[in-house]
Write a protein that binds this DNA or RNA. Structure first.
Lengths: 333, 333
DNA sequence: TTGTAAGCGTTATCAG
DNA sequence: CTGATAACGCTTACAA
């Protein structure tokens, strides 16, 4: 693919309007020191020739790419695209370009992606990927790329992070539940390879159960709502109750549907709590009790933090967002 | 933000390993004509110095950015992020970077975004945005940017497109329905400012109704499932039946839920057809009859077409994807 | 096999 | 206010 050729360059604009490169440059950058007359003349030929400056050359010359890199897992989850949307919104607002890097569920790949981020010469990066740990991020950092990490506590000179407050909240909710209900088996839905947040919440869940001296179960399932549905249709043939904690709305929704479709009552027989709530929590019937974090806002905030960080004006390098428990109809309370 | 400075350059690598720039360049580009010995020596200092080539400078020197630009509306719809995911997947596979541009529901803004795409010097672009028409795209084209347009029939030398086959299918389905059912009022859900696809399907819908000599209704609603739900809770106080055609799953789901929550039976009293089906069609109860197009595949295909186009090897410049009617439980048949 | 030097399209620093 | 000219970091003939 060669499309940079045959384009009008600043040089041609200069020649065509009978001025020097420097003058044209001044015009396109709206700098002073240009007569109104020459400015007009130059602008006219710019329009006539259809000249557009090369962002590449500008970036090289100024050492600023005005581009930020965003690293997200390739998984197609609603909450991820919400974060991306928030980032994109602020990028646009602030005049940054956004380069998107996606990782594929392996640390190896994630590190390769990080290398790409480095060679891409972005002015900053936002990383929302569980595979990468502090060491990897500090690598980026050593190339002077200001970085905001989402959902991972990371420290460093040019690093800030946004961490989610799920565990504390979850602990409380599950403990309350166990205290009130001694019937239902507390069950955590373990989705294979689903990252740190899941691991942390799972750990919290187990601890709470142990503290309450209660039997609990871990249910392994695929990261797919339709397969989860099938699994639970099978499961509910032999199990007639349960208190389930699921990672995302689609998984939680699959369980709720499987329960209902198996003739069980939600929330009387089966209760389901969804960890990462999205707007789909309201679409299922019954609606899903979930723990909400406004992911679009997370994206926005990350971007704001990044620009502050780049200006060395970020005071609070760690920003914690608490999840909000939203009681809906898939649980008793 | 200045992060390009202070980085190790090819020049320093050359000096540190006692060779010339050219040799280092050959090494990092895996070109032949380098002794194994010097290659090793260079690679060693590269590692030692932590040198990473500047993509910017490479792009400028080679006139290839190995980046493609993707233009999508900022709306946070599942089907849009599916397309993006498909594109990202193939980008990665082919070694392209992906620059993301989002537009904000106005042609004016979309055109501004297109200018950005041009200055960004991408090697190709994929446009999935209803606001832009053929003229705008040809603008891009005149800058030698190979372009694939999704959901819009566009022609041009370096342009290809993917069009969705909805209307034909929809016509047939609605006509069948009207023939069999003379009770329910056919109603099209009009979402304000929702683009060409909606407009086209709405037109088809109206034509079919007129041909069948049937009264029909257009229901205006916001592009929000929760507000649509509220609107329909109100609506179903006075209307007790209807055959609704909705744009997306969340809108359709809102109607189904409002109907059920109002004591109406779906599909006996109220039937709902969703136009752009996603995986959420299976999550609602009853499930949503919808017209499916695999949007991830659309993204992949767009990217494949783009790389072919760039090599001038794209034969079929227009690729048509037919929607697949999936009968689920929100309609009788 | 290796090095020299001329670009790539800008910006930025000086003189004038 | 304007114009040379040297960067920016890399690739690539062309020479050696």
């Amino acid at each position: 693919m060669e499309n940079l050729k045959d384009r009008v360059t600043i040089y041609e604009v200069a020649k065509a309007s009978g001025v020097s490169l420097a003058t044209v440059s001044r015009v396109i950058n709206n700098q002073g020191n240009v007569t109104e007359k020459t400015r007009e003349k130059v602008q006219e030929t710019i329009k006539k020739l259809g000249y557009k400056p090369s962002g590449l050359a500008q970036a090289l010359a100024t050492s600023k790419s005005t581009t930020i890199g965003v690293v997200i897992p390739s998984a197609n989850y609603v909450y991820i695209s919400c974060v991306l949307n928030g980032i994109a919104e602020v990028c646009k607002e602030k005049g940054y370009n956004l380069q998107l890097f996606s990782t594929s569920h392996s640390r190896e790949d994630a590190i390769r992606v990080l290398e790409k981020v480095i060679t891409s010469h972005v002015d900053g990066a936002i990383i929302f990927d569980d595979e990468l740990d502090e060491e990897d991020v500090s690598q980026l950092n050593s190339y002077y790329v200001p970085t905001i990490v989402i959902n991972n506590r990371v420290e460093g000179e040019r690093v800030g992070c946004i961490v989610f407050g799920y565990e504390h909240n979850l602990r409380k909710i599950v403990a309350d539940k166990l205290a009130k209900d001694s019937e239902k088996t507390p069950t955590f839905i373990h989705v294979h390879n689903c990252g740190r947040l899941l691991a942390r919440t799972e750990k919290s869940f187990i601890e709470v159960c142990k503290q309450a001296n209660r039997e609990y179960a871990i249910f392994n399932c695929d990261d797919s709502s339709s397969r989860t549905y099938d699994d639970f249709m099978e499961y509910f043939k032999t199990h007639k109750q349960g208190y389930f904690v699921a990672y995302r709305d689609s998984i939680a929704g699959a369980i709720v549907n499987a329960a209902t479709d198996s003739g069980l009552r939600v929330p009387e027989d089966v209760e389901v709590l969804s960890l990462i709530g999205t707007k789909y929590a309201n679409i299922t019937r019954p609606t899903l009790t979930s723990m909400n974090i406004d992911m679009v806002d997370v994206g926005r905030r990350a971007m704001y933090m990044l620009t502050d960080l780049a200006k060395n004006e970020l005071e609070k390098k760690t920003y914690r967002i608490e999840s909000v428990y939203v009681k809906r109809d898939s649980t008793k309370e």
